[in-house]
Design a protein around this nucleic acid. Structure first.
Length: 590
RNA sequence: UGGGGAUUGGUGUAACGGUAGCACGAGUGACUCUGACUCACUUAGUCUAGGUUCAAAUCCUAGAUCCCCAGCCA
């Protein structure tokens, strides 16, 4: 047996999280799992108060990816500690999105779905423990008063209830749980340091009173734990090793540690709780994109988009409907890396990721979006030729067959209006009077003239075809070389065979790289042309493709079948255009 | 104003005292039955000022800029 390891195409340097994990694994910091491998356990802890977006995708890919790489486990855990903002609708969508993004957990151990609300009883007991230790107290200050007494960097906060007897806090806390006190009347606060320069440590609130039904626990509770108190305990209970969160929680880390240490104080052996390590990373930002949940919610509420899954939305559902694959999103996250420095990723990277994926995988088809009629003068009336169309030339280029299917060719065709110019510039190598071009996989045609209406608009192009070029290849000369070459190859569709469908041409939702920078209002930068709906003349072979099916419409871009499709009237979404150097060049020239 | 962080080409990311590299973008060219893909070449960087060292993106000192924190949100 050979010892040669499988060849790794490239040696990618470890990111800072991988370095931490490998150091931990080497030192045995977290022990081993049932398989005897060093323990690595991550989680994604969303609050179910909105839909997931591409920023969350980074966290999901990161956490699940680390679990996969190090043979660990990954939990989806709902941080459902605030019933006032959370809804079942979001829970369902999040579960679905995470499963989709992580490819249904393939290749690593999926810990499952967990709920912070399942731990409420445990959290309560721990809170009582802290009160008994003199590390927490019931405070009767209103939210307003707490805010006023918060102090400044130089002056400490104050609370007249800080030295309340333990027994009294115990009794009051039990009463709070029993519903004897109204919303906002009291809180349980950790007794840490009212003078700390880190405001997070100025006796933070652990519990607030909220007489509100919870989507999971119903009316069982009327006190709910705050994030800082709850989160570390959730991680602890689930055996999370690396609790990865975003940068703004850096100030909270001392508190995360304080809570767990305080619980463990005076405990030994199995009474001690597990102490995970919080590590912060920089969230994802994208140019031309707004990631704020609140803002996205408003777009939906105000009807500026069709819903959370509008293909222009940066939500996972939106991207999915737009035609983005989970694989492309994972590839992007892998590509951009992870660090502790804030950054803004060019949205072109996202577009690049899906192009790369679909270029390799998407079947090709022809579709004309802005048609002009071409009549082949020397083609017999009524005759139809069935030509071989290569389904995936990329696969063919990689040594596969690529596959073929038949496309019908007839006397009257459509091509794109943009592919014809009556008086072309020298670098235009598409169709114009007297010029010969190839129709993809079909024939060479030569333009013989145009028909115009009274206003001078071209209504029809006249052309002749060369029978010797069937299939799109020039006949070969005695030297084995093509007898003639054409510079242009156009996509086309047979007028009689085309299926009419709706094609939605999406562009970026915002027209500014940094929405809102100009005026302070992000809405001012909404792109009025982010959706243009046109009628497309579609290849009959794909007109009935199933929802979600992805295609490259040759020379136009990648498209997928939208869920709004009805039998006989398909709807296609443009996922992304192909790169177009001609548009760049011709646009630049004026 | 106090505390906590971050600064490497246009963008993102490597280097862990020893040749500043990679990717994306941009530009040029080749190839081409998609003006796509692919390939080749080019472009451009260590926040500033001092210091330590044979040697500094890396260590030290001082400064600059940006981000986060004074919710009973997460």
């Amino acid at each position: 047996m050979s010892d040669t390891p499988p060849t790794t195409p490239e040696h990618k340097p470890l990111n800072f999280l991988e370095q931490i994990i490998e150091a931990d694994n080497a030192s045995g910091k977290w022990g081993v799992n049932e398989q005897g491998q060093p323990k690595v356990h991550t989680r994604f802890p969303p609050e179910p108060n909105g839909y997931l977006h591409i920023g969350h995708a980074k966290s999901i890919c990161l956490n699940s990816g680390l679990a996969r790489k190090y043979h660990g486990a990954f939990n989806l855990r709902f941080d459902d500690t605030n019933p006032a903002k959370e809804e079942q609708e979001y829970v369902d969508a999040i579960i679905d999105d995470v499963a989709w993004l992580t490819d249904n957990h393939a290749g690593y151990r999926f810990g499952g779905v967990f709920w912070a609300s399942d731990y409420f009883e445990h959290m309560y007991e721990c809170a009582v423990d802290l009160i008994r230790k003199g590390k927490a107290y019931v405070c009767d200050l209103s939210a307003d008063e707490v805010s006023k007494r918060r102090g400044t960097p130089g002056t400490p906060a104050t609370s007249p209830f800080r030295d309340r007897p333990i027994e009294e806090s115990l009794r009051l806390f039990a009463e709070m749980r029993d519903g004897k006190h109204p919303n906002g009347s009291r809180t349980l606060r950790a007794k840490i340091d009212l003078a700390s320069p880190n405001f997070v440590l100025r006796d933070p609130v652990m519990y607030r009173i909220l007489h509100e039904a919870h989507h999971n626990t119903g009316t069982k509770w009327c006190i709910y734990p705050m994030y800082d108190w709850a989160h570390g305990l959730e991680d602890s209970l689930e055996g999370i090793t690396h609790s990865i969160c975003t940068l703004e929680f850096r100030n909270n880390r001392p508190l995360y540690d304080w809570f767990i240490q305080s619980i463990n104080e005076g405990r030994s052996g199995s009474a001690r709780v597990h102490h995970p390590q919080q590590i912060e990373f920089a969230r994802l930002n994208l140019t031309y994109t707004v990631m704020s949940k609140r803002f996205l919610l408003n777009l939906v509420k105000e009807g500026r988009v069709s819903g959370w899954d509008d293909p222009r939305m940066p939500t996972i559902r939106g991207l999915r409907r737009r035609g983005y694959t989970a694989r492309s999103l994972r590839a992007l996250c892998d590509d951009i890396g992870v660090t502790t420095q804030e950054s803004v990723i060019d949205v072109a990277r996202l577009e690049n990721a899906i192009r790369e994926d679909l270029n390799a995988t998407a079947p090709r088809a022809m579709c004309v979006l802005n048609p002009i009629k071409v009549v082949i003068e020397n083609w017999p009336e009524g005759k139809v030729d069935e030509l071989d169309f290569v389904i995936n030339p990329e696969e063919a280029a990689r040594g596969g067959s690529g596959g073929t299917r038949k496309v019908p060719f007839s006397k009257v065709l459509y091509i794109e209006r943009d592919d014809f110019m009556e008086n072309p510039p020298k670098n235009f190598f598409r169709l114009s009077p007297g010029r010969e071009v190839r129709l993809r996989w079909a024939y060479f045609i030569t333009c013989t003239g145009v028909e115009k209406d009274a206003a001078g608009n071209i209504t029809e192009i006249r052309a002749t075809y060369d029978p010797a070029t069937r299939g799109g290849d020039s006949p070969l000369g005695p030297d084995g070389k093509p007898l003639k070459k054409v510079k242009g190859t156009l996509h086309w569709i047979s007028a009689d065979h085309a299926v009419k469908g709706e094609v939605r041409l999406f562009d970026r939702l915002f027209s500014a790289e940094e929405p809102g920078k100009r005026t302070g209002n992000q809405l001012d930068d909404l792109n009025p042309n982010s959706l243009v709906t046109v009628q497309g003349w579609i290849d009959p072979a794909i007109a009935g493709a199933k929802v979600g099916g992805a295609f490259q419409f040759e020379r136009l871009g990648y498209f997928c079948v939208d869920k709004d499709s009805k039998p006989g009237s398909p709807v296609f979404n443009r996922t992304v255009t192909l790169k177009d150097n001609w548009a760049k060049e011709s646009g630049k020239g004026g």
